[in-house]
């Protein structure tokens, strides 16, 4: 199965197996990003002086950003384990960037077990086992996702409230959730 053929605009893929990170070994960053290097580096929030560094000396976060920068011109961008090394602030930035990229009719495919990266970002989620699609959904709250994938804390919280027969709507934003709790408690 070719990931590129999956339907959707920003797509989440949860694999059952380990995903291998792309590895450029000691290749210099300037030889990995072949087009519009300065613009691409700025877009992924990397300093321009990273151009002369070897890929294998970078942090995992920087490696992921370099890989994304190298694919910005592609029509289909596949990113494996993109959240590795990302801090919270950057997660939010990249979710917005993915939406912006997708608005130019490009397809983004995020392959990871870290489902928090999908929240408020992807439109379709696939579970894949041995290269076969075993499940497809557009519902973040679908329990089938959490057999293999890591459950985002806000969804875990809402599930646990349901266990106590407290029905909250399917919030993915903490501020909306707090308002809902406040309404119930008052």
């Amino acid at each position: 199965m070719e990931l590129k053929k999956l339907e959707g605009s920003i797509i989440g893929v949860i694999p059952s197996d380990l995903i291998k990170q792309e590895n450029f070994n000691s290749t210099l960053v300037k030889d990995i990003i072949k087009v519009k290097i300065d613009d691409s580096l700025k877009m992924v929030k990397l300093d321009l002086d990273i151009k002369d560094k070897a890929f294998n000396t970078l942090s995992s976060m920087e490696k992921n950003k370099v890989i994304l920068a190298s694919k910005l011109q592609d029509d289909v961008i596949i990113l494996n384990n993109f959240s590795k090394g990302l801090i919270t602030k950057e997660r939010e930035y990249f979710k917005k960037l993915f939406k912006k990229i997708a608005s130019y009719h490009k397809k983004i495919i995020l392959v990871t077990k870290d489902i928090e990266l999908f929240l408020n970002c992807v439109d379709t989620i696939y579970l894949i086992n041995n290269d076969n699609i075993v499940y497809k959904t557009n519902d973040y709250f679908d329990p089938a996702l959490y057999i293999e994938g890591d459950i985002p804390p806000i969804i875990d919280f809402i599930y646990k409230c349901e266990d106590l027969k407290v029905r909250l709507d399917e919030y993915t934003d903490i501020n909306e959730l707090i308002k809902a709790i406040y309404r119930i408690k008052s």
Binding site: I87, T88, K89, E90, P152, P153, I154, D156, F157, K160, I174, L177, I178, I181, Y182, K185
Partner: peptide, 28 residues
């Protein structure tokens, strides 16, 4: 440094603010 608080700490802090809870929690 670019981190948020963990979800459960953030939620309990805000629920403290609204007088719904009165301590900080570290597990859901």
């Amino acid at each position: 440094l670019g981190y948020s608080l963990p979800f459960v700490v953030d939620l309990s802090l805000q629920l403290n603010y609204y007088n719904i809870l009165d301590k900080i929690y570290f597990n859901i």
